[in-house]
């Protein structure tokens, strides 16, 4: 199980990487390698050129400002999970992290790689969507911002055009009144989710929900916002019954895929459970976690 032949370059700058991508049509970008390398070894991918972006220092930068958190695309999972300032800036990142792979994958795998790979069961794309993140994409013609909702387009498909590179992810500042919850069901710890939910709930001083984000992942070809369910929460003081209602709304109309690990029926049935549990955790309503 050996990779097919390819040529390799490790540019030191984003411009260098973009030039290589422009020059070689079937080039692939090598970030953490935790998805691309297995594909190469299994000969499921055979690019003529590999553009290794690990030598571009700018891509590993992290900045936390009043405007929010900015993660370079090459920031590795383990750094997100072990740097308390990052999880402090966007608590959903910290909640999702324990579900992401295993130690030796976390040390190499990158958030940008996960987003660009666009596995519909992956955690980071769901977190980005639930956090209103914006993807900074750079191409030969300059940079553009892509909101998370427009970034994942389907299974292994994103808004990144040929010749473009995802360079950073920007998370807006996290309001003090925002609660977050994350729940997923996977075959084993660290596996991709069969189905999961990432949620945020903004609470007013009187406990009324002023805003909410409910994202389901693993339930369709890409992570999806469930706006009807979000609307159901808005203006209400959430309790167990309301959470059940919202969860049920969140799963309505989804058309999940079937695969080896979970049938569409399974995902349809468990999706509302994940939403309910994520909301229950976010709102510290343990009784809402239990089956009714």
């Amino acid at each position: 199980m050996k990779a097919p032949p390819f040529a390799y370059a490790a540019p030191a700058s984003i411009e260098g990487a973009l030039a290589l991508l422009a020059a070689h049509e079937d080039a692939k970008v090598l970030a953490g390698g935790q998805s691309l390398m297995p594909a190469l070894n299994l000969r499921l991918a055979a690019p003529s050129v590999l553009v290794d972006i690990n030598a571009i220092p700018e891509l590993s930068e992290v900045s936390i400002t009043p405007a929010g958190l900015r993660l370079g695309a090459l920031v590795r999972h383990s750094r997100i999970g072990t740097n308390s300032a990052i999880a402090g800036a966007v608590p959903l990142l910290g909640l999702a992290y324990p579900h992401i792979a295993h130690g030796p994958v976390r040390t190499r795998g990158t958030i940008g790689g996960s987003l660009a790979h666009a596995d519909p069961s992956a955690e980071w794309p769901a977190v980005c969507l639930a956090s209103d993140a914006v993807m900074e994409v750079r191409g030969p013609g300059g940079g553009r911002d892509v909101p998370a909702e427009e970034f994942s387009l389907g299974i292994f498909t994103t808004a990144i055009e040929p010749g473009e590179l995802l360079v950073a992810i920007r998370f807006p500042a996290w309001p003090a009144s925002r609660r977050a919850g994350f729940a997923e069901v996977a075959r084993r710890d660290g596996d991709f989710a069969m189905v999961g939910a990432a949620v945020t709930v903004d609470l007013g001083a009187d406990g009324t929900c002023t805003d909410a984000r409910i994202v389901l992942f693993g339930a369709s070809s890409r992570p999806v916002r469930r706006r009807e369910a979000e609307a159901r929460l808005r203006g209400q003081v959430p309790g167990a019954a309301l959470l059940r209602e919202a969860a049920s709304l969140a799963a309505q109309g989804i058309d999940p895929p079937s695969d080896l690990h979970a049938s569409a029926e399974y995902r349809r049935r468990v999706a509302p459970v994940m939403v309910r549990r994520a909301l229950a955790d976010a709102l510290s309503l343990p009784e809402a976690r239990l089956a009714s």
């Binding site: 090598l30 390698g33 935790q34 590999l50 290794d52 190499r108």
Partner: peptide, 13 residues
């Protein structure tokens, strides 16, 4: 010092 999968890295990396 950090654990990595040696099958998922190129020697050149």
């Amino acid at each position: 010092g950090e654990p990595v999968r040696a099958c998922l890295m190129l020697a050149v990396q």
